[in-house]
Amino acid sequence: MDEKLKIKFIPYEVLKNKRTRDLISDLKKNTIIIVDAKLMPREEARLIRAAMKKISSKFSGIELNSLELSEVKKDKTWSDVIKEKIIEIILGKKRGMTIIGPADIIKKIEKDPTDLLLFMK
């Protein structure tokens, strides 16, 4: 990992059409990926599986964490929940944010719980 650190912002709509191995390839090149949505659980699992396949002495895996907008908002009413669901169906994504980075440079990504804190090694 001798490349300079890069931060890549990827819209969820682009990310979901990207091949997982291309994402891992980016992560292996010292890139932190920020996505404008919370990944679906199956996408997270797929990403972890893909990362595991690429683990070597130069790449020890990934750190990821995400925030879901509906989790951040406290004291939600029923109308808030329904509104959030409708928006989710229309947009086809969970509103929020995901940070994915190589574990070799990121110590941890902590949920605060309304912010994401990224700790570098």
């Binding site: 990362a51 595991m52 683990i55 002495s57 020890s60 895996g61 750190e63 990821l64």
Partner: peptide, 30 residues
């Protein structure tokens, strides 16, 4: 989400064994 063989070395495993354990661990997660 991450497996670093160096962590196993720190816990007292020999380098070769640590690498083997890391390799098996990745398969285990999958």
């Amino acid at each position: 989400t991450k497996i670093d063989f160096e962590d196993f070395v720190k816990r007292g495993l020999k380098k070769k064994k640590a690498k083997q354990r890391a390799k098996e661990a990745t398969k285990g997660v999958i």
